[in-house]
Amino acid sequence: MLEIKNLTKVYDDGTVALDNVSFTVQDGEFLVIIGLSGSGKSTLLRCINRLIEPTSGQIILDGVDITAASPAELRRIRRDIGMIFQHFNLVKRSTVMRNVLAGRLGYVNPWLSLLGIFPKEDKERAWKALELVGIAEKAYNRADALSGGQQQRVGIARALMQEPKLLLADEPVSALDPATSHSVLKYIELINRERGVTVMCSLHFLSLARTYATRIIALKDGKMMFDGLPEEIDDQRFKEIYGEEAVRVEVN
């Protein structure tokens, strides 16, 4: 269970990215965060694993206060939280295999890992993860030789290597075309359903959010605008979240 209490983030330039946000995520949820660009979705997700340091507030994962963790504790906590990125964040010149194994860095012997040595189980685990996302045959290709959708599947495999309890996905499909978007989200849904991994995913399109989410949170200018079931978002709410001039775009 993840609890977020009065989370606020103010950047050095004075931008208030998150303004007193509080909510709780139950285990096994597929939580989708929606909102316009700059509404604070990325900041929220990055505060949870402290890639961005929150200004105030608390984040408690299974009773452990992440915001108070020491650097060593933070690394231990981070390996329980997988993350998927909008631009995949793969090392383009490394092989797919190496990128996926990087997901295991929080577990393995740090010194051996610097030499590129991983335990055999981890390699087996990497093959399984790659097979799960359907790109095992690309294991020894360079990451930049893959298409966008394939690269994001490598990103998912990397996150799977952490055997996470919580998976953060920061706009995982906004750099992909609609068809590929669905295939990537289906893999995330699979992980959520079959492995019981809690998912927190930010998305641009409401239609995608409705298809996959078990619960939706909407942010606007760093404030929580909505917290509820996908069906509860009607035209009125939509306008509140996206602004008066917005038109619904369906992505199928």
């Binding site: 890639l51 690394r75 390996r79 997988g82 995949f88 793969l90 990087a102 929080g106 740090p110 890992s113």
Partner: peptide, 29 residues
């Protein structure tokens, strides 16, 4: 590219691991 650095840090890697897995592969070739 700072993306991979962020990604590797988010897996719980330490500073050295981040350099070896996210920085060096980018600059070495």
């Amino acid at each position: 590219d700072f993306g991979p650095i962020e990604a590797v840090r988010s897996t719980g890697a330490n500073w050295w691991q981040t350099v070896v897995y996210a920085v060096l592969p980018q600059v070495f070739p």
